[in-house]
Amino acid sequence: LQLFIKTLTGKTSTVEMEPSDTIENLKAKIQDKEGIPPDQQRLIFAGKQLEDGRTLSDYNIQKESTLHLVL
Rank of each mutant, 00 (worst) to 15 (best):
V70W: 11
N25A: 14
K29I: 10
N25M: 15
E51G: 04
D21S: 09
T22F: 08
E51A: 08
D21E: 07
Q2V: 15
A28S: 10
T66G: 03
K11F: 11
A28E: 09
A28T: 09
D39E: 13
K11N: 09
T66K: 04
A28W: 12
Q62I: 12
E51D: 08
R42Q: 10
K27H: 02
L3E: 01
L50P: 00
E64S: 12
Q40D: 07
F4Y: 13
D52S: 07
Q49T: 14
Q41I: 13
N60A: 08
S13A: 11
Q41E: 01
S20Q: 10
H68M: 14
G35E: 03
V15T: 03
R54W: 10
T12L: 13
S13R: 10
M17W: 08
K29S: 05
L56A: 03
K33W: 09
T14Q: 10
K27W: 03
L67P: 02
S65E: 07
M17R: 01
L69V: 06
F45L: 05
E24W: 14
D39S: 13
L1S: 04
L71G: 07
G35L: 04
E16D: 09
D39K: 11
L56G: 01
T55A: 07
P37L: 06
S65F: 07
P37Y: 05
N25V: 12
I36R: 03
I30N: 01
T12A: 06
V15S: 01
Q31N: 09
E18I: 09
Q49N: 10
Q49E: 15
D39L: 09
S65L: 04
L26Q: 01
L71P: 08
E51Y: 07
D52A: 07
K27C: 02
S57C: 04
D52L: 06
S57Y: 08
T12G: 06
I30F: 03
T66F: 07
G53R: 09
F4K: 09
T14S: 10
T9H: 14
G47L: 03
L43N: 00
L50S: 01
E64T: 08
T55M: 11
G53C: 06
P19T: 08
V70Y: 14
V15W: 08
A28F: 12
D32Y: 10
G35Y: 03
I23R: 00
Q31W: 15
Q2Y: 12
Q2E: 07
P19E: 08
Q40N: 08
I44Y: 15
K63C: 06
P37G: 05
R54Q: 08
E24I: 11
E16L: 13
F4A: 05
L69T: 01
D32R: 12
L67S: 01
L69M: 07
T66A: 05
P19C: 05
Q62C: 05
I5F: 04
K11G: 10
R54H: 12
G47R: 04
T55Y: 06
F45C: 02
Q31L: 10
T66H: 15
R54L: 11
L8R: 12
E24G: 13
L26K: 00
T55I: 08
K27Q: 02
P38R: 14
V70D: 06
K27T: 01
I5L: 05
S20N: 13
I61D: 02
Y59L: 05
K6S: 07
K48T: 12
D52Y: 05
H68D: 07
R54V: 05
L67R: 01
K6H: 12
Y59I: 03
V15M: 09
L3G: 01
S13V: 15
L3K: 01
D39R: 12
D58V: 04
L71S: 08
Q40C: 09
G10Y: 04
P19S: 12
L3D: 01
I30H: 00
S65D: 14
E51T: 06
Q62K: 12
E51H: 08
P38A: 15
L26F: 03
D58G: 04
K48S: 08
T9G: 13
N25H: 13
D58R: 02
L8N: 12
Q49F: 14
L71K: 07
I44R: 05
L3H: 01
R54S: 06
K29N: 04
Q62W: 08
F45A: 02
L71V: 13
L3Y: 03
E24C: 06
K27R: 06
K6Q: 10
K33H: 08
L50H: 00
G35W: 03
R42T: 14
F45N: 02
D32V: 13
L67A: 02
M17D: 00
I36S: 03
A28H: 12
K6T: 11
S65N: 08
R42H: 11
T66Y: 07
T7S: 11
E18S: 13
N60F: 08
K48H: 11
L43A: 00
Q62R: 11
Q2A: 07
Y59F: 04
D52Q: 05
L69W: 02
G53P: 06
F4D: 03
L69I: 06
I30S: 00
T22Q: 03
N25C: 09
I5R: 00
T22C: 03
E34Y: 15
A46R: 14
A46C: 08
I5M: 02
T22L: 10
K6A: 07
K33L: 15
K33Y: 09
G53D: 10
E16A: 09
L56T: 01
V15E: 02
Q49Y: 13
T9Y: 13
L71M: 09
D32I: 13
I36F: 11
P37H: 11
L69A: 02
S57H: 09
K29M: 10
K6L: 11
K29C: 05
Q41C: 05
K63T: 15
K27Y: 03
S57M: 12
K6Y: 08
I44N: 05
Q41P: 02
G35T: 03
K29V: 10
V15Q: 03
V70I: 13
E34K: 07
G47F: 05
Q49M: 13
E18N: 13
I44D: 03
K48A: 09
L43V: 06
I30M: 04
E34S: 12
Q62G: 13
G35V: 02
R54P: 03
Q49C: 10
L3M: 04
D52H: 06
I61C: 01
V70Q: 08
L1N: 04
L71Q: 08
T12D: 04
I23Y: 01
D52N: 12
S13E: 07
V70R: 09
P19N: 07
L8F: 12
M17L: 07
K11S: 09
G10S: 03
R42N: 10
Q49P: 10
I23H: 01
I44P: 00
Q49S: 10
F4W: 09
A28I: 13
K6P: 01
E16Y: 15
L50M: 06
Y59P: 00
Q31K: 10
Q49R: 09
K33T: 12
I61Q: 02
F45I: 04
Q40Y: 10
N60R: 07
L50G: 00
L43M: 03
L1A: 04
D52I: 06
L67H: 02
K27V: 02
S57L: 11
N60S: 09
E24D: 09
L56Y: 01
E64I: 06
L8K: 11
L1P: 03
P37T: 05
Q49I: 15
R42M: 13
R54I: 05
T12I: 15
G35A: 05
E16R: 11
E64K: 11
M17P: 01
K27N: 01
I61R: 01
P38L: 13
F45R: 02
R54A: 08
G47C: 05
G47P: 01
E16N: 11
P19D: 09
K27M: 05
A46S: 08
K6C: 10
S20H: 13
T7V: 09
